[in-house]
Design a binder for these strands. Structure first.
Lengths: 339, 339
DNA sequence: TTGAAACAGACAATCGTTTGCATTAAATAT
DNA sequence: ATATTTAATGCAAACGATTGTCTGTTTCAA
C-alpha cells in the first residue's frame, strides 16, 4: 500500500509529527537541518504522497471548491469554468464542476453533495426557481459567490454582466439602421439575466418611442429547439419583425437561424439579427453574426478572487456585486430594413 | 457547526455506530424499528449531512473519479466529460476534471493530485510525450482508463475511435469526386489519434495510387493559429492541393478556413475540405462542412463503464480496448475539383 | 426452569494527518 | 556550577465516520 507519514517516520527513526512539520514547512518549530534532510530523502525514496483526505478531515479544509452551472457544454460557462479551474490550480485548489441542466432538484442535490464533501467554497449560477437552498448555504457560513444570475434581495458576493445596457446598445444599433419592428427572442423566462435583457429591450423601445408588441417577445428555454420553435412562431406573424435580438445564447440562436433559413429568408437582407453568441464561431457562420460578447475569462476571474478572499478572510467580508462589461461586435448580420 | 454522527447519537441517546448502521442501511445487524425511526427523525431534525471526507478516509473509497483531458473547451472533450459526469452522478460518483493544455508536466501534477485525493479511478486522454507516469499509476493498482489516445504497448482498458478508417473514408470520398491532390492538415504530431489519422491518409493514397507529397502534410498543434499558419503554408505552394483533410479538430479547421478565405479561395469551388469538427455548428457555417463526427457520448459512456467495472471488481480484470465508430456527415464543403 | 439461540446495541480501534503541549538535551546567562 | 533559555523532538488527542467484536436482553424450545 501507499506509504504513510508513519512509514516515512519509521524509516527515518523519528516521530510522524516531525515528518509532518518538515513537510508542511511553516510553523516556527525548528527542526535540525540533519533530520530535515533525512526526512526529505526518505520521502523521495518511499515516494510518499500525502493523503489529502486525512488532511482535509483534520484541518477542516479541503482545498476544493464547487462550481455549479447549468451546462458546461455551453461555451459561455465552459470558458468561465476553465478560467476558474486555471486560477484554482495556481492556488492549489481543485474544482468540482456540477451541471444542473436548469433542474432545481439537481441543484439542491449538488449543493448538498458539495457541502458533504467539505468544499471550501461554492461558485454558482443558480437555476432560480427558488432561493431557499442558496440562503441555507450562506447561513451555514460557507463562502459562496453567485455568477451571472443573482437574487437581488440576498446580500452575497456576485459577479454579473450588464445585461440591460448591452441589449439597449443592440436595439439602439438596430433603430439607427432604421428598424422599427424589433423582436426579442428570449430564452428561459425566470432567469435573472433574461429578465434584465428583456428590461433593457423594453427600456430601449420606450426611449425610441417604439410600441411594445407582445407577440414579438418569444422563447421559453435555452435549447436549440426552443430557439427554433420560437422563431417559427415569430415568422408566422402577419406583420414580420425586421430584426431579432436573440438573448438566449448559442443554441437558441442557431435554432433561430435554422428557422429563418427554412422560411426562405436571408440574413441580413430580410431580417437582421443580433445575438448573445460565442465569438469563436460567429465570424465563420454563413452570415457572420453581429454579437454581444462577454468577457468570460474576466467573469471567472472576478468570481474566483471574490470567493478566495471570502475563504481566506476569517471575519465575514462586505458582500460585493461586480458587474463585468460586454462587448458589441459588429459583423454582417445587421443591415437596413427593406421597407 | 454542522452536526456529526455523534450529535445525532446523543440526541437520540444511542451510540454513534448505531446511527451509522441505520444510515448505511446494509449489514444484517438488526436495529429495532423504534430506534430506527427515532434516528431518522433526529437526522431530519438536526439536518445532519454526513461527512464524505471522514467516510472516505475510513473506507478508503472516495466516490470520486478524475478525468484528465487536454482541454475541456474543446467540444469533443466537453461532450465526453459531460457524459461521464452524468453517469457518475447516477452512480454517486463525483468527477474532477483536469485540463492539461497538452502539457506533460501538468499532467503529472494532476495525476499526483488526484492520487493524493484518493480518487477511486482515473480516465485520461494523455499528452503522450512520455508514458512512465501513466505506468506508475497502473502499477499502483489504481483503476485507469485511457481515452482517445492509447499507448499500444501498455495493457490497460481503453476507448478509442477508428481514426485510420475514418480518414480513409474521407479520402475515398474525395478521390471519387476526382481529387488527386489531397493535403493533410495534421494537428499535433506525436499524438496517437493524429498518427493514426495520418496513417489512414497514407494508406488511402497508396490504395488509389496517388503519390505522397511531403509538402502536403502540414500542421503542428491544435490551436486556431496552428491551423491558420499551416494552411497558409499549404496555399503558398506552387502546386495547390484541391482538397484538405483537416484532422486537428474545430480550432485548427477554423484557422484553415480563415486562411482559405484570406487567399480569396472559395469552398468548395476552389478547394474542398473535410474536417474532424463539431456537428452542432458545422451546418451553419458559411459553407456547411462535410465532417467526420465522433459519437462522443458513447465514448464517455464506454470509458465510464470500463472504469466502474474496474473499480468494482476486486481482482484485476482483463484489459480491453474498445473502438467506437465515427460518422461521415456529407455537407457542402466537398465538390469536384476544377481542373 | 434452564440453556441456547437470536436480538439490539455498545465499545473501541482505525483511517492518515495536524497541532498544542510536554519533555529532553544543549546552550547561554548568572 | 547552577539557573534559565532555547532548540529539537516526542506524545497524544483530535477530525468524523465505519466496523469487528463483545455484552446484555429476550425469546423460545426442551
Amino acid at each position: 500500500m501507499a506509504p504513510t507519514l508513519k512509514d516515512v517516520a519509521a524509516h527515518v527513526g523519528v516521530h510522524p509529527s516531525t515528518v509532518s512539520r518538515v513537510l508542511r514547512g511553516k510553523e516556527n518549530l525548528k527542526i535540525s537541518a540533519k533530520t530535515h534532510d533525512k526526512i526529505l530523502k526518505a520521502v523521495k525514496e518511499l515516494n510518499y504522497i500525502p493523503d489529502f483526505t486525512a488532511r482535509a478531515l483534520r484541518m477542516k479544509k479541503s482545498f476544493t471548491i464547487g462550481l455549479i452551472v447549468p451546462d458546461i457544454l455551453n461555451p459561455y460557462f465552459a470558458r468561465i469554468a476553465r478560467r476558474i479551474e486555471q486560477l484554482g490550480f495556481e492556488k492549489k485548489y481543485t474544482v468540482i464542476v456540477c451541471n444542473t441542466d436548469e433542474d432545481q432538484q439537481k441543484e439542491i442535490l449538488f449543493l448538498n453533495q458539495l457541502i458533504s464533501r467539505g468544499v471550501d467554497g461554492i461558485i454558482i449560477a443558480p437555476v432560480q426557481d427558488s432561493k431557499e437552498h442558496i440562503v441555507d448555504v450562506i447561513d451555514k457560513n460557507i463562502p459562496l459567490v453567485l455568477i451571472d444570475r443573482i437574487f437581488e434581495d440576498i446580500n452575497v458576493n456576485s459577479v454579473i454582466t450588464n445585461n440591460a445596457e448591452s441589449v439597449m446598445k443592440a436595439v439602439t444599433h438596430l433603430v439607427k439602421l432604421g428598424h422599427k419592428r424589433i423582436a426579442f427572442l428570449r430564452g428561459q423566462k425566470n432567469i435573472y439575466t433574461i429578465k434584465n435583457r428583456l428590461a433593457g429591450y423594453k427600456e430601449a423601445l420606450k426611449e425610441f418611442n417604439l410600441s411594445l408588441i407582445d407577440n414579438y417577445i418569444v422563447g421559453e428555454g435555452f435549447e436549440f429547439e426552443d430557439g427554433y420553435e420560437a422563431t417559427l412562431k415569430l415568422l408566422a406573424l402577419p406583420k414580420l419583425p425586421t430584426a431579432i435580438v436573440s438573448s438566449g445564447g448559442d443554441l437558441v440562436t442557431l435554432g433561430a437561424i435554422k428557422a429563418i433559413y427554412e422560411k426562405g429568408l436571408k440574413i441580413p437582407e430580410d431580417i437582421s439579427i443580433i445575438a448573445f453568441f460565442d465569438s469563436l464561431y460567429s465570424p465563420f457562420l454563413a452570415t457572420p453574426l453581429t454579437t454581444i460578447t462577454h468577457y468570460r475569462q474576466k467573469i471567472g476571474e472576478k468570481a474566483f478572487k471574490l470567493l478566495l478572499k471570502q475563504i481566506e478572510s476569517s471575519k465575514d467580508m462586505q458582500a460585493k456585486t461586480i458587474c463585468v462589461d460586454t462587448k458589441f461586435e459588429l459583423r454582417d448580420s445587421t443591415a437596413k430594413p427593406k421597407n
